[in-house]
Design a protein around this nucleic acid. Sequence first.
DNA 1: AAAAAAC
Length: 464
Amino acid sequence: MASLSPAANEASAQEVLSSNLEGLTATDAGDEEIVTAQERATDLLESSYSVVVKLADQQADVHSPLYSAKSFEDLGLHEDLLKGIYNMKFAKPSKIQERALPLLLQNPPRNMIAQSQSGTGKTAAFALTILSRINYSLNAPQALVMSPSRELARQTMEVIQEMGKFTQVTTAQAIKDENLPPRVNAHVIVGTPGTVSDLIKRRVLDPKNIRLYVLDEADNMLDQQGLGDQSRSLKRFLPRDCQIVLFSATWAERVRKFAEDIAPNANQITLKPEELSVDGIKQFYVDCRHQMEGDKYRKYHVLVGLYSLLTVSQSIIFVKRRDTADEIAQKMSEKHHSVVSLHGKLEAAQRDEVIDSFRAGKSKVLITTNVIARGIDIANVNMVVNYDMPTDQHGNPDPETYLHRIGRTGRFGRTGVSVNFIHDDRSMRVMEYIEKHFGRKMIPLPEDIEQAEKVIKLAMKTSG
DNA sequence: AAAAAAC
């Protein structure tokens, strides 16, 4: 306990608030209790959460009330959208929504580059923009949302549908193996870049009426080899006056220029660096360097030792390679753990089945690659394990992926714990780099596995 | 020295 950061309570308040704004509060909590918790959280949030707004129009006054919406009514949203919002239990705009929505909704439309932490309602921000801009009497694709993975595209689609429940919106998923008509005329398309560009080239998808192009997890969409080229080249099919919106929790310096290139003259919303800390999630590490030396599976033995003691509701184990995910899932299954593995080598239908059943709580442990590192919301996940520390293709530390991975837990005001597995000097150096990058120390777990389990269990019980 | 994303 003594090792917990002093700011942990503030961060947890943010999560409590996000929880309410995301409409995913604990179902057993009474309405009265939710409101109280939210009010308390709001006070803390106001003082701790800060954004920097940079307007494309130099003449405009950033501090004008025009650029800050304290309520959804202030935004002039259609009644049917307000119904959708309140149906999802959103009480008032989150800080990012408050700042971003007036800018996103202004006419003529302006491009937007925005940064916002996981779980602060960025999906809702662009969903509301999309649903506000559609011409419902025109049966043609008018908004195109791109995701870096199949799983995130499906989840985002669900949010748009839920929010647009009281509108006449029609939607279509442009992902692998999805059955689509010969001519897609849905208003909103959510998809992955390869399939979308394929559909456009085959004239299944006509881009001429697209007025909004959204890149979710935009730094990843622009930076990654393959994804980046596809996202950029798609832009040439879009009308010249198409509004371009880029959202992500992370924006490494190197990627910024891509962003400004694809979304010229954009309004920009940036988080102050201190907002990127992850104090709400208790970050541990287990040093396996001196355990069972010489045994190539010693990291695995520590993992399975920990899991044989721990009782967590659900957890995600991140590994580097797809075959490692399968291998560990296989071995843990033999030990009667409730485990599934998910990665891009699986068939599309299989991927859907695995993620849907994990979401439904049918298995307790998801072993996966970076495919799930970003954006995925699964409320009951209260532990993330970095079995392999996140690195780029050169083996260099990847703090952005680290932040996204551990952001899969500690969501919605729930307790979140992460455990990094260190097995050699290299992985130790990767972790130390990430510690420095975020200015946060990870907490060492006792070498004795039973003691380690007690420490993790205690961290899970204390409010995160 | 990986993963993701198209056929």
